[in-house]
Simulated scan of single mutants.
Amino acid sequence: MLSADLPWLQAPLADALARARSHALLVQGPAGVGQLELAVKLAQSWLCEDRGEAQPACGRCASCKLFASGTHPDFQLLLPEALDASARESLGLPFEEPDAPKAGKAKPSKEIKVEAVRNLLAFAQATSARGKAKVVVIFPAEALNGIAANALLKTLEEPSGLLRFALASHDSASLLPTIRSRCQPLPLPLPERSAALAWLASKGVDGAEGLLDATGGRPQQALAWHEAGLTDAAWQALPKRVARGEVAALSDWAPPRAIDALQRLCHDLVRRSHGRPGQFFAAASLPSPKRAAPLLGWDAELRRAARHADHPLNASLWIEALVAQAQTAIAAAAR
């Protein structure tokens, strides 16, 4: 079904199919470990017409073939506009290339809006085309804005017919409590390190161990960074380049990604200042701060900057200011 199966999903999929007692499951865990893939696998399994009790989809029946082609009439995948094409491509499902941005035209939304939910409800109320379940996957569930989430509540609580939901989230705490309470939780933890490294090696990722550490053990994110051109060597060089004030270390990065990298660096430096090892960088890559106070102030500044990272007035000046701020904080912490 999927273009790239994630081997660590086999056990949680089998467990979910065996233990699911609700019409709505909430797949939750850290980003980059396969929440969407697991939710889609659940959907295909629920729709499969030739599987045994608590078994995953067979992949051979007419329903599975329709699902793989992206034309199953009883399946809906609800995504924000900004994620739609990339998410469908990663799943091996048909997608439409997004139009090139035009001047004055709004950017694709990162929210799931109420209009999309209303269209979904029309689908949910229709009779199943193949006489089995109708299944809805929503990802990321936290992208439902307040109006959209409230519009979904009644159907989520009282689904018509054999309607089933698989919500996938990497920030389930931000969901409405009324949404969470209507779903059976399905935790998806980080995969075992050996499984993640084997998968990354199969994708041709050099320096997989360093990139896996850089992403906090999230193999999908490590692969995405590799595909974007980031190497382990470049990542390990980042702390000392930033400490020297080299703007070029981050000049090719979008502001949100640059802030994320600096937050990881700040986190590791705070740990080092307390005599603990870093989490995202190798020990040899990190300066040795003596004081945590300047780093904690820097962390607060980064959190404020992150709230505006998607809309900087001038990205290059923004990056330059971030690097200068980082250099100042690291130097103060070393004194």
Score class of each variant (00 low, 15 high):
S3R: 13
L6I: 06
P7N: 04
L9G: 07
A11N: 10
A14F: 04
L17H: 06
A18W: 02
R19N: 13
A20S: 14
L26F: 12
Q28S: 15
A31D: 15
V33G: 07
E37I: 04
A39T: 03
W46Y: 11
D50S: 14
C61G: 02
C61Y: 03
C64V: 01
L66W: 11
A68S: 11
T71G: 10
H72G: 04
D74E: 09
L83A: 15
S90I: 08
G92N: 09
L93G: 09
F95T: 13
P101H: 03
P108H: 12
K110D: 15
K110L: 15
I112Q: 12
E115C: 14
A129S: 05
G131S: 00
K134E: 04
V137E: 00
V137I: 00
V137S: 02
I147Q: 15
L163C: 11
R164G: 06
H170G: 04
S172V: 11
L175A: 05
P177T: 04
S181F: 11
C183S: 15
L197D: 03
W199H: 09
K203Q: 15
G217Q: 04
P219K: 02
A222E: 07
H226N: 12
T231H: 00
P239I: 00
K240T: 01
V242S: 01
W253G: 00
A258H: 05
I259D: 06
A261G: 01
A261H: 02
H267I: 03
L269A: 05
Q279I: 13
P287M: 02
A292G: 08
L313D: 02
N314G: 02
I319M: 05
A321C: 04
A326P: 01
